Simulated scan of single mutants.
Amino acid sequence: MPLHSIQRLSPTAVLGLWHLTETPEDLWAALPNAAAYQPLLPATADARRQAQWLAGRRLVHALFGELPTPLPPETLVQNDATGRPWLAGAPADAVVSLSHSGEWAAAVLAQGGRAGVDIELIRDKAQRLAGKFLAENEWAHARAATADGVADTHYTLLWSAKESLYKLAAHRGIIFRQQLLLQEFNPQTSGEIPATLVLGGAETRHRICYTQPAPGYVLTYCHEPAG
């Protein structure tokens, strides 16, 4: 079953996971409002990217009925000029965050508040680029917390956590090393990472949840209800 799981984060928010096994043709055939989505598909997407893009939209549609007030079936997942997803035809307080990597797509759908989600295939890329997105103290903590064989997982987790916080912030021009700050934590298979967002001269505190939904992947997410 491609729809892998639905987890309720709060009375007004749900997290969904989709395990991508279908071809683009299979996904198109079962996608609601497929004709309306056809002109929205990125023109440069190859077959793999098309499948990820379509699976993400299938997943979000599967979550519509999980909110206290279900979203209208004609709602479309669109992207703004920065690539951030939004829900055309839905109430103004409907919030969506969407991510895909490899064979997985993840989404948080909420009624009010803010949300961020990110799923990543574990690779060595995050460790190689650590100096570009980690503050000096974060990098020092990461070196102390990692042992042989787990560094790729840990650095990928740190990158993913910052991606989720970035999506939650919904603000352009954020510098990851300076404005998305992660506090020291004891790495486990799943847990929470304390985080600080520095924006507009103010600092706010957040908690990024994390887990490993499948071998070779990390998932991070955060939902903060309105009020």
Rank of each mutant, 00 (worst) to 15 (best):
L31E: 01
A36R: 09
G89F: 12
A34L: 00
W86C: 00
N33W: 01
G65M: 02
V77M: 05
L67R: 11
Q50P: 09
A92T: 14
L67N: 08
T82M: 14
L71W: 13
D93S: 14
A45M: 06
W28S: 01
A88E: 07
L31Q: 01
H100G: 05
L31M: 02
T21H: 13
R84Q: 13
L59S: 03
P42K: 03
R48Y: 10
D93W: 11
L54Y: 04
V95G: 01
A88D: 05
P91W: 05
A81Y: 10
T44Y: 13
L71N: 07
A81G: 10
N33A: 10
A90P: 03
L63V: 09
V60E: 07
P85K: 03
R49P: 09
L71K: 10
R57W: 05
G56S: 09
L76W: 10
V96F: 12
A90G: 01
T44M: 13
H19Y: 06
A30Q: 15
Q38L: 15
P42H: 00
F64S: 02
Y37E: 03
E74L: 14
L40F: 03
L63E: 07
L20G: 00
A62T: 07
R84E: 11
R84D: 03
Q78I: 13
T44F: 12
H19R: 14
T69H: 14
R84T: 10
S99G: 05
V60W: 08
V60D: 02
T21P: 00
D93T: 14
D93Q: 15
P85C: 07
A88R: 12
P70S: 06
T44G: 10
G56M: 10
L67P: 05
S97I: 06
D80A: 04
P73A: 10
R84A: 14
L41F: 02
N33Q: 15
Q50N: 04
P68K: 06
A36E: 15
R58E: 01
N33R: 11
D46H: 12
E66T: 15
L71F: 12
R58Q: 12
A29Y: 08
A43R: 15
A35V: 10
L40D: 04
T44N: 13
T75A: 11
G83W: 08
W86N: 00
A35F: 06
A43Y: 02
E66W: 15
A29H: 12
F64Q: 00
V60A: 05
L27K: 02
P91G: 00
P42Q: 03
V96G: 08
L41C: 15
T75L: 07
H19M: 02
A62Q: 13
A47H: 12
T23E: 09
A47T: 15
P32M: 09
W86K: 00
Q38W: 11
S97Q: 04
V77S: 03
E22C: 02
G56T: 08
P24A: 02
L76T: 05
L98T: 06
T23F: 08
A30W: 15
T23M: 02
A88W: 08
Q78Y: 14
V77D: 04
Q52V: 08
E25H: 13
P70I: 06
V96T: 07
S97A: 11
R48E: 11
R84Y: 13
P39E: 00
L87M: 09
